[in-house]
Every structure is written in C-alpha cells, then in structure tokens.
Design a binder for these strands. Structure first.
Lengths: 235, 235
DNA sequence: GATACGGCAATTGTGCACAATTTGCGCCGA
DNA sequence: TCGGCGCAAATTGTGCACAATTGCCGTATC
C-alpha cells in the first residue's frame, strides 16, 4: 500500500478532532498515530504541529499533543466571535452588494430551501455552512474569507452531530431574513438578523454539546479514514 | 555563545518580513539563514514553516520560502479586512462596553495625546496600534483578540516606516472620535468613526509603500537582532 | 538560430539515531 | 501514614545523513 501523504492525514485528524467525539485532553501520541497511519513519526509530528497552529489541538513543548476540552464556554466564544466578525461582514455587504452577488445569494438560499423540502439533511447542513462562507466570499477579501472559513469550520462539525432536527425549519428562514436585509441595503437590520440567527444556532446546539466519554481514537480514525477513502491499518 | 532559540529567530524574521524593506519574492534559503543565525537547518525550517502558516511568507513545496510581493493591493486588502473586523468589534462594544472598559479606553487615548504632545513619536506609534488591540481585548473574546492582533501587526510595521509625520496629528483625534461614539453607545456612529479612521490611515500610508530595492537580508537581520538584544554572526 | 532533450548542481524533504525532558513509581525517612 | 527524593521508562526534541525534486546550462539537432 502506498504511504499516506501529509494532507490526507491532516484531513482525517481534523475531522476526528472537530467531531468532538473523543474526550477532552485526550493524548495524541506520536508513535501511536504513526503506527495507526503506517507512516513515520516525523510525518505525524509535522501534522500535529500544524493542527496545533490551527488551534485544533493543544501542543505543549516536551509533553505532546492533546485535544482541547469541549466545554460550553468555548462554544460560546466561537459563536460570539462569529457574531462580531459576520456582523462586520453583513454591515460591509449591506452597502456594497452587487447584483451578481445578490443573485448568488438568492440562488443559494433557494437551494437550501429545496434541500430542506426534499428532506436531504446532509446537503442542507452543508449548504447552511456554505451560506456563511459565501457571504465572506462576497466581500472579495481573502483575509476575511479565511477567518470566516476557520470559524465556520469550527462549528460545522458540531452542527452535524448535535443539532436537533426539530429546529431545522428555522435556519432557512433566518438565512432568508439576512438575505432580504442585505438586498434592501439596510445595514442595521442585516447585522441584527445575522446576530440573532447565530445566537439561535448556538442555543439549539448547547443542550447536546456535552459528550464526555466517547469512542476511542483508533475506531474514530478508522471511521473517518473510510469516509475519505483512505486506508488505515487498525489493529 | 548560547544557540538562539526558535522563538527568538521567529521574532527577528517576523520583524524583517513585516518591515517590508526587502524586495518581493526574495528567497529565504534554509542553509543561508542557518549560517546567519548560527543554528541548525532544521530549526530554521521549523520557523519558516510557521511563518508560512502565518502567511508572512510563501512556502512552496520543494522550492523553499519567499517573501511576498509588497504590492499596493495587499495593503488595501489588509485595511479592508480591518474595517470589516474592527467595524464588527465597534458595533459589538457600543452595546456592551462596561464602565471599567470605558475607563481603560479613556486612559489609553489620553496617553496617546500625551505622547503626541511630548513629541515621542515611537511611543505614540506603539500606543496607536495598541488602541486597536485594546478594543479587541475589551470584547473578552480570545479568538477576536488573536485575529485583530494579527491584522494590526501586519499594518504596524508599515506605519513605523512609511507614515508621513505630517499626518500624525489626526490619528489621536480619530481615536477619540471612536471612543466618544462607543461611550455614548451609538453603534452606527462608532462603526463609521472606526471605518473612516482606518480609511484615513490607509490613505496616509499609500504614497510611501512602494519600495522596490532595499537593503539585503543579512544586514536587515543584523539590525533587527540588535534591536531585540540577540546575537547574530553577520559575516 | 531556436528549440528540445539530457545531465548536473543546488536545495528541500525524509527517516533514523541519539539527546533532553517529563512523569510515574518506588523507596526511604520523619 | 504521609511527604519528599530519586531513579527509570516513556515520549518528545534535535541534528545528521541520505533521497528526491527542481531549475539551469550545455549540447545537439532540426
């Protein structure tokens, strides 16, 4: 079998970590991961440091890498950061949205509605996240796009696993409200719509976010590796 | 002499790069830097990859690290990103600023005015940058603080070298205007004040931002190393 | 004269072996 | 019995040597 490349390992570990399904402060030992993926320790080390820099794990000098505790306060921090950043994005776009941009937004919201109608939950979740990234892209500012992508990424996985399906109906309407305010060029209303939408998503998430004991690292890696088409030797 | 640690090398190279005084696409060879700093190639490599992840340099696989071209469009992108992010911060703070926070802001603005009066240009520049970081800190959100710090850092050095001294008077008034709007709790005015302030800073910078041929890498490293108190063997 | 091919030098990527640090456990003493 | 000390095992950090890739230059051919 061909040795796995760095990008693939990073993708798998990202998913595993973002899924929040393994307990907080789980140690990610270099040798163990190296054996699991069938690669050398140095390759794992590089990925681990990269993940550490992306704040997905906590890397302590001379002690190794650990998952961060999935505590409620962090969820709140992430969502508050999103309210601030995406509030700024909404305010910016309200005064600068082009016709082409408006069209892209409208089409996106309609696709969301379609996915929701047809009961395609997976597609709808993906589109819901992409709505926020799309807004960032409409600013045509690569820095903002990257920051937004990072924050959205940190919440997407949470939604995938924890959002109650009962609340699904709301999301689409909330996106539509943001879109309408932007299309009307009403800055204040757009910011408020975005802010309250994010607050509601956070509320829907909270009751489900406490998972202490989950499956172990080995099986999780196997699971996500299969999902991404990679081969992993799980003993 | 004791070997330099990774943090120190990173600090020096950050300053060198952020100073924008070396031409775009300058190659940062691993062996050359290793000899300059008197450390092994692996240590340099690690710092280089970190800088690459921080987007301060461009790291291409199998080809090495290069400085990014200091073109005007990037300056515009950074400032636009700041207008979006810090606009969001201002909007957030306008409705949530505590008395303690207001006091800290007031004191900071007064210190800026004092530095400006006494003609202490270096202190004033430092305080000017810190005003924006302080605003981010008042949100008490670590993610926002980090993002703001990163963007402010990318503009601070530019200001240090390129801002015309004639325009100095304005900055303090503009900060005061932001502070007043926040203290009054007027969200719209705060956002506008922040946005126009950043736009003016950008305007003041632009005419000075085009430096094609500058000093070479060796002397720059020596210069900044001396500034930080480190020892470097410059042949 | 221009272009395409091939070999060479330089530079980066990778795996390995060793050094340094941490930590858990056991032992001794109070 | 409890606290401190010290050693040993495990784990991470570092430097070195080698492999792989890239870009360049010389040459040959059309």
């Amino acid at each position: 079998m061909p040795p796995m490349d760095e990008a693939a390992i990073h993708a798998i570990l990202s998913r595993v970590i973002l899924s929040r399904r393994l307990p907080g402060r789980t140690k990610l030992g270099e040798v163990r991961l190296a054996e699991l993926f069938g690669v050398s320790r140095e390759r794992i080390r590089k990925v681990l440091h990269r993940l550490g820099h992306e704040r997905l794990i906590d890397v302590v000098k001379n002690r190794g890498a650990f998952t961060v505790a999935p505590d409620l306060s962090e969820i709140h921090v992430v969502f508050e950061a999103r309210r601030i950043l995406e509030g700024g994005i909404a305010a910016h776009l309200a005064e600068r949205l082009t016709d082409a941009g408006m069209l892209r937004l409208r089409e996106h919201v309609e696709r969301e509605a379609e996915a929701l109608r047809s009961g395609d939950r997976a597609t709808w979740l993906k589109l819901s996240a992409e709505f926020h990234v799309l807004l960032a892209e409409l600013t045509e500012n690569p820095i903002i796009v990257q920051q937004a992508r990072e924050l959205v990424g940190r919440t997407t996985m949470l939604a995938t696993f924890f959002e109650s399906s009962s609340g699904s109906q709301c999301g689409c309407d909330e996106h539509r409200a943001v879109f309408r305010a932007l299309a009307a060029g009403e800055r204040g209303r757009a910011v408020r719509a975005m802010s309250s939408h994010l607050a509601q998503v956070e509320t829907r998430l909270k009751p489900f976010a406490c998972t202490d004991a989950g499956p172990d690292l080995d099986s999780l890696i196997g699971e996500y590796a299969a999902e991404l088409g990679g081969e992993v030797s799980v003993g």
